[in-house]
Design a protein around this nucleic acid. Structure first.
Lengths: 111, 111
DNA sequence: TTATATTTGTTCTATCTTATAGAACAAATA
DNA sequence: TATTTGTTCTATAAGATAGAACAAATATAA
């Protein structure tokens, strides 16, 4: 079982969600949108690299777009291993929280 | 918003679940049970320390137990801040996964 | 009744892995 | 050659992991 970090989970989910337009910039924007935080360039590309090296993602170079300027994109896609890791992560989370009462009922117990 | 790491989430949930018997050893055992992995001593106490320093947990020394041997326990409890962080973490996760079809439907899309 | 053994639990520290930030660089079209 | 879009690279901070060392409790032996 490969347990993902939270960053890795967010990035893999973003890649999944973005389908054929998953590359550095769009992944960064979606992650920012989902989490309500700013993500630096490095906070996206470093994990993307590692996830690719470790077989959770694969990447290929996109075609030129005939838009004004701009370097070619590196597009990402989940591998079967990436999908499995996401599933297992979700299952663990569900298990973790299954025993806990509704989130809204969570309160610190007085000493 | 304080976004917890996965380790922190698991530890805080374990502390919550264990109520008045949350200390290093029981937390370690519950984390192992929940995740199906072995947790080293340091993998528990180092985050416990940090979570306490950062105000997510508070701790106090337990009474001697009149069982055979054994050092006094350091018991942990969630603070209001810890509860809030757990709630926000859960909400983020729910949001992250809300857009995704059932986990079982997740498959890598062919290239 | 004092010393030593045994048990349970925590503290400490070293090292490895991840996260984070942004400068530098590259490649595309205007 | 300038401008735009995007990626690579690198340095540093933060978190994860492992387990040796240490501490404090009761049991047992002399």
């Amino acid at each position: 079982m490969d347990l993902l970090t939270r960053t890795e989970e967010i990035i893999l989910l973003s890649v999944h969600e973005l389908r054929d337009s998953a590359y550095g910039v769009t992944i960064r924007d979606l992650a920012a949108d989902l989490t309500g935080r700013r993500w630096s360039i490095g906070a996206i590309y470093v994990p993307l690299d590692r996830l690719t090296r470790n077989g959770f993602l694969k990447s290929h170079s996109g075609d030129p777009t005939h838009q004004r300027g701009g370097r070619r994109k590196r597009l990402y896609r989940l591998t079967a291993k990436g999908v499995t890791a996401l599933k297992e992560t979700k299952e663990l989370q569900d298990k973790l929280w299954a025993a806990i009462p509704g989130v809204s009922a969570l309160r610190p117990r007085p000493v």
